[in-house]
């Protein structure tokens, strides 16, 4: 199980990375934390690909509050997400999600940009982005654009990212006073991909609920959100979840169980936001 890689270049800065990406004409992939990409290289599942290593690109680092937007550089490691005061204060859902991602050694290397670009449907961060209504900032030779998270995740491991584009940052609406956020998941073992997970954001203008691990992408549960917004009970919100998510059977659980667990999580998350001030941890 030895990796096959068709070449490697360390990008000096963002413009270098983007020019390399353009020059590769789709034959290169961006190497950030590498915690999924290198595994797939080792397994020879990644095809013949060259690597553009962006780990030295400092423009992609850093977490900053800009007015009412929390800006998180694409190269921010999961560990930084888990320990950042800024994230804890302004995007607690991410703060709660980060420690659930794999294990310490993975969190030290894995990045938010890499996780979103990979778009694993069972990953926590895509669902955080959707629930938080975050904007994924991507850049390519044609320039920079922002994509709403709900438009970014298209299908299984498929995003709106162009072949010559890379994620540079994430912009998250900062948690407002009184807003409550909760991330929960049900994983068989600590650090495993969850059988089901939820990110619930209760804002003044309405609830946003995203699930992960229950379909080909992280998904916004619009029907359930509507029930919550008209102040339906947790049970009522859970009852309509079959309109929002259609899990598939797999080796870890039948679809019906994932739907059931999503319902349990929705009830628990709603009760948690009702019971206590969980937005700010």
């Amino acid at each position: 199980m030895k990796a096959a890689a068709a070449g490697y270049v360390r990008a000096n800065d963002l413009s270098h990375a983007i020019s390399l990406l353009a020059a590769s004409e789709g034959q290169a992939r961006v190497l950030a934390g590498g915690q999924s990409l290198i595994a797939s290289l080792n397994l020879r599942l990644a095809g013949e690909t060259a690597l553009i290593d962006i780990n030295g690109v400092t423009e992609l680092c850093g977490i900053a509050l800009d007015g009412d937007v929390l800006r998180i550089g694409a190269l921010t490691r999961h560990r930084e997400l888990a320990t950042s005061d800024l994230v804890a204060r302004h995007a607690p859902a991410i703060s709660q999600a980060a420690p659930l991602i794999a294990h310490a050694a993975i969190r030290n290397r894995g990045t938010i940009g890499g996780s979103l670009a990979y778009a694993d449907p069972a990953a926590e961060l895509p669902a955080c982005m959707i629930a938080l209504d975050a904007t994924i900032v991507v850049q390519g030779p044609a320039g920079r654009r922002g994509v709403r998270a709900t438009d970014f995740f298209i299908d299984l491991f498929t995003t709106d990212l162009g072949e010559d584009e890379m994620i540079v940052a994430i912009e998250v609406p900062a948690c407002a006073p009184g807003e409550r956020q909760v991330t929960m998941e049900l994983a068989r073992r600590s650090g495993d991909y969850a059988l089901a997970g939820i990110v619930l954001v209760r804002r003044e203008n309405g609830a946003r609920v995203a699930f992960f691990g229950v379909g080909p992408t992280a998904v916004l549960a619009r029907a359930a959100m509507a029930v919550i917004d008209r102040e339906g009970s947790p049970d009522e919100a859970a009852a309509v979840l079959d309109q929002d998510i259609q899990p598939l059977d797999d080796v870890h659980a039948p679809a019906s169980v994932r739907l059931h667990l999503a319902r349990v999580l929705l009830r628990r998350a709603l009760n948690a936001t009702l019971a206590a001030e969980v937005g700010h941890v």
């Binding site: 397994l43 068989r188 073992r189 600590s190 650090g191 495993d192 991909y193 080796v251 870890h252």
Partner: peptide, 16 residues
Amino acid sequence: LLNANMADYLVPMAAE
């Protein structure tokens, strides 16, 4: 064999 990898064949880990 559908789960021939460490992530999908679950063995006991410390936390549980």
